[in-house]
Simulated assay, not measured.
Amino acid sequence: MSRTDLSEDEALRRMYRTTAEQERTFEQKLPELLELGRTYLRVETGFLTEISDDTQEIVDAVGDHEKLQAGRSCPLSKAYCRRTIDMDRALTVQNASVEGWENDAAYEEFGLEAYIGAKVVVNREVYGTFCFADSEERDRPFSEAEETFVELMAQWVGYELFQTRATERMQRQRDELEEFTRVVSHDIRNPLGILDGYLRLAEETGDPEHFRRCRDAVDRMETLIDDLLFLAREGKTIGEREAVDLGELVRTCWSVVNGESATLAVDTDRTVMGDWSRLQQVFENLFRNAIEHAGPEVTVRVGDLDDGSGIYVEDDGPGIPAEDADRVFDDGYTTDEDGTGLGLTIIQQVVSAHGWEISVTEGTDGGARFEIVGVDPVDD
């Protein structure tokens, strides 16, 4: 069947047949639908765009127009689609040069005489447009049936993209739940085993030392549960931001960490926009980590990075082996048999929720040095 003799009924049948194929992916069906539309509408090209930050990018396209190919982009101000996204129905142009487009930036950029496009909406937000166009004008306006055809395909694209995003989100949640379950089952099983063993010994001997060991196991489980609940409820989110004096914050955090013989040096007067309570969790975990791994007489220093991009927290302890540097933020990773392995995971998630990044390297005195970048100071 040639491009000129595809009827409305046949076009709709092909569209429904293609969209209903469950065994094929959206990416596999999209070019076929663009080609179907190009054939039915008897135009040169068909394309799907994504609009973000005032830029139009072509996601996929069929046809030979040089500037309408997958991966090409242009400012939205130079695109026909800037008007499409403001329309409740499809935007149609039969002859651009006589319909007020001759001095338009989009006409100058693409030279399209005929155009029909509908906006694609995903989760109530404009994603982009589903369009068909030609460098030659049409001998007749687009019909109501043709407008409906393009609108239906744009709605299908929006639905498919919504479903894809929902599926990806559910998969991430399943992966996170599996990891969460793995950490819980692994790390709680250990103190439970210790508790069971020492309770048996305590029952048999009455030795107070066995009861103390039981108490230690219970304390570790409480710490683990607190960390897990934080990760599950708040680890990836932050509350309202406020101006935070980092010097004041780190001194407050230090006062609640058990480090009577340890020393804190503060070399920053930076004020940043952040969630005070969540940042408290970051610095308290960093300080506890330093004391646990470097010893009770450790010196911890907090200061600004030389290039002004952020801050560092370093200690004078033994440091972190180079081969472990990429693993320290993984759930459950710890070199301390009594540790939960979640403290640094919490730190990374809170830092990321602020839009910052954290990494670990060697400190000035050979200890561990955590660098947080992207921490822009508040202007005076």
Rank of each mutant, 00 (worst) to 15 (best):
D53L: 11
M221S: 13
T167L: 09
V328C: 06
T39L: 02
V298T: 09
Y333N: 01
R165E: 13
D60S: 07
R369E: 07
E357A: 15
D207P: 05
M15F: 14
D379C: 04
V373K: 05
V244C: 11
V378I: 14
A368G: 07
I116N: 01
V121D: 11
G308S: 06
I320Y: 02
H354V: 05
L76I: 12
I311L: 15
Q163F: 12
I225M: 14
A105V: 02
S277H: 12
E222H: 08
D267H: 14
R13Y: 10
L264A: 02
K78A: 07
R38V: 06
Q163P: 01
E10I: 04
S2C: 05
T167H: 08
I346A: 09
T205I: 08
G128I: 01
Q163R: 15
M87P: 14
S77I: 06
D60W: 06
A262I: 00
Q281V: 14
L249M: 07
T92Y: 04
D216F: 12
Y127A: 00
F287E: 04
S97L: 05
D330H: 08
F26L: 08
E32L: 10
Y40C: 08
G193Y: 13
G235F: 08
T55E: 12
G317V: 02
D219G: 12
G332F: 09
Q349A: 13
D88R: 10
E32D: 11
R82L: 03
P141G: 09
T84L: 04
E234C: 07
A368E: 01
Q349V: 04
G355W: 04
E168K: 11
V122E: 05
L36H: 00
E146P: 00
F211H: 08
T223E: 15
G128V: 02
E222C: 07
E125V: 14
I188P: 00
E151T: 07
K236Y: 11
D60P: 01
P141T: 03
D315F: 05
V244F: 09
E314S: 05
D196N: 13
L30N: 03
F47K: 00
R200I: 13
T263K: 15
A294E: 05
L305V: 03
K119F: 10
R212Q: 13
G295C: 10
R220G: 07
V360E: 06
K236N: 15
A118D: 02
V150W: 00
V120K: 01
T84D: 04
